[in-house]
Design a protein around this nucleic acid. Structure first.
Lengths: 184, 184
DNA sequence: TTTGCTGCAAACTGTTTGCAATGTT
DNA sequence: AACATTGCAAACAGTTTGCAGCAAA
């Protein structure tokens, strides 16, 4: 059975893109929903399915976007409201989600940025230093080049992280003048 | 006049490397010493050449290695000793050095890692998740691939950061068994 | 003599942890 | 019942900042 859980409105490039490259990647078809997948993970580790965890998985997979712990907490119910989750639990859960393969994370400007991993193809990012937007891209050649370079050093690759910084199309159009924050 | 300031012993691969790929990159020939270059930068900004700053540039460029603020501070004179530099000043200076183009920095495991930039060619890193060693490599193809991907998105590239993680040659030889810390 | 720089200590940010109470199996 | 999980608050690591005295230019 193939789950179709990506009901949420994906944010795609608003521009009429000449080369038709979407800003967001297409999802893959996967056998389990994130919830199911996480439950499997928990069981395999003798851990427990709890209300906060279920709630967080739901919230996170209801949108396709990059986020950090703080941004996530901002979107969750406040203390006193129903379904409130303490930030300690948010931090603990995010680590588990990464461990479970649901999320991916990387460092950007000092904070930890998360993105959906389960159900999405591997990719890298373009980072606009003006609007701080992250744009995903896929490149098979990049992988090939990476492996070639690693091979020269007898290095066994397990993964990589690449961040290309610069100015995105919209920012390049809208504001020509350079700003301090460009210098990354 | 070409300065020959790289008198320090560069750490190169100890192994008899089949493909002769050095673990450290060759330096470029540059017109000014780091000190001179920094002085130029300071003057252009109306800032001052001071004893702590001179001392730090000297210490840092006396070795070729990656380091973070803490590691650097450890190698400097302690409080009370001559040439002591407070850590606040170390942090402030490191930022200036990056700004001046003397150093480069990137995030690794949460801390900020610095490396010599002035006098060294651009490169990327292999990161061994067993011994935590950073190995530098150069790849023109990587740049080409990067620019191609960026072009598809109308993205103007200013730079990039790539970190390939895995297991280095020595660690691959010496210890076969997997460890928790490998999973990066 | 002006103004940038330093050391100090305190503040800050993002994240982790100990613990007693609570929830899940 | 057994024990994993939670919320809270305190702790933490790495880094930044305000300020008064000090030092380049």
């Amino acid at each position: 059975m193939i789950a179709n859980f990506f009901f949420s409105s994906l944010q795609r490039s608003v521009l009429s893109d000449v080369s038709s490259v979407p800003e967001s990647l297409e999802r893959l078809e996967v056998a389990l929903t994130p919830q199911e997948r996480f439950e499997e993970y928990l069981q395999s580790k003798g851990q427990r399915q709890t209300k906060p965890r279920k709630f967080l998985v739901e919230k996170i997979f209801a949108q396709h976007a990059h986020f950090d712990a703080d941004e996530l907490i901002d979107k969750l119910p406040r203390k006193g409201e129903p379904n409130y989750v303490s930030s300690a639990t948010v931090y603990r859960s995010l680590r588990e989600f990464v461990d479970a393969g649901l999320l991916n994370c990387f460092q950007l400007d000092g904070r930890t940025v998360y993105e959906l991993d389960y159900g999405y193809p591997p990719h890298d990012h373009l980072y606009c230093t003006r609007c701080r937007k992250l744009i995903e891209f896929r490149s098979e050649e990049l992988i090939a080049t990476r492996d070639e370079a690693a091979a020269k050093h007898g290095f066994r690759v397990s993964g990589h992280r690449m961040l290309v910084s610069g100015v995105c199309r919209e920012c390049g159009k809208n504001r020509r003048k350079k700003r301090k924050q460009d210098l990354v």
